[in-house]
């Protein structure tokens, strides 16, 4: 697949990946600040697990300590790898905050990339507490730390399903002119975002289109909502 390119010429975090079928996938990489929360959760989880492990195994004497050290090693180095490969690129922290690791072309992360990006945490940690990784990620337009750069991976926001909107029933009216896909989306969004907008702003926005719709500015919001209802089709 071709590499991801910025989605617009304007400043945006989104990347566009075109699949061979000609479908555009939009990826929105997450910055270090967003990922820091997820990492903190993962760190806390691992710390709690380690303490519990040592507490239980410490009672078994030297054998317990030895076993505990092996398990600690596994926990520290394989926790992220296993979760990322087996849980669709999401460690528990990432899952909690809707983040996901994928390859740069949007494909699910595999063993090779997951191992590489997590082994290179060792470099990102230098000299203390992920300073290197933090600076690299803050300086990179795709927010990749060094491990991500080496493994060719991205941490992206998982697209969430939009919340269902309560819509008032409305007599649908066809638009008096042809609308492009983007314009249809805008009209639909106008219909759906009624509650977020103040009445004055609703009227102001619809008033922009009043001359096109052939109605007065006061009637424009209702007309625009009716057009949106028509675009939505029957519920």
């Amino acid at each position: 697949m071709p590499p991801a390119t910025p989605a617009t010429s304007l400043l945006d975090t989104r990347l566009r990946v075109e699949t061979p079928e000609g479908v555009d996938l939009l990826l929105s990489p997450a910055s270090a600040l967003t990922r820091a929360r997820a990492f903190a959760v993962d760190l806390a989880l691992r710390a709690a697990l380690s303490l519990a492990l040592l507490g239980v195994l410490g009672r078994l004497g030297e054998l317990g300590i030895g076993l505990g050290l092996i398990l600690l090693f596994l926990l520290n180095w394989w926790y992220m790898v296993l979760f990322e490969v087996l849980n669709q690129g999401r460690s528990p922290g990432k899952q909690l905050f809707g983040l996901r690791v994928v390859h740069e072309d949007g494909t699910p992360v595999g063993w090779g990339a997951a191992l590489l990006r997590n082994l290179l945490r060792f470099v990102d940690m230098l000299p203390l507490g992920y300073c290197c990784g933090l600076l690299a990620s803050l300086a990179n337009p795709r927010f990749q730390r060094l491990g991500d750069l080496a493994a060719g991976t991205l941490v992206i926001h998982q697209p969430r399903a939009p919340a269902a909107v309560q819509l008032e029933p409305m007599t649908p009216l066809p638009a008096p002119f042809a609308l492009s896909a983007a314009e249809q989306r805008a009209v639909l969004a106008y219909g759906e975002r009624q509650r977020q907008l103040s009445p004055a702003r609703r009227e102001e926005l619809a008033g922009l289109l009043a001359p096109l719709l052939g109605v007065t500015a006061e009637q424009a919001p209702l007309r625009l909502q009716q057009i949106a209802a028509d675009l939505r089709g029957t519920p």
């Binding site: 400043l11 910055s31 967003t34 803050l138």
Partner: peptide
């Protein structure tokens, strides 16, 4: 005339955009 893409974002995505903004004029 805005130099950033205006679209509805979650607050954390807005933070990401802030990082990009700082990068652009670093």
């Amino acid at each position: 005339d805005a130099a950033v893409a205006v679209r509805p974002r979650s607050p954390w995505e807005a933070v990401d955009l802030g990082v990009r903004l700082a990068q652009r004029h670093a």
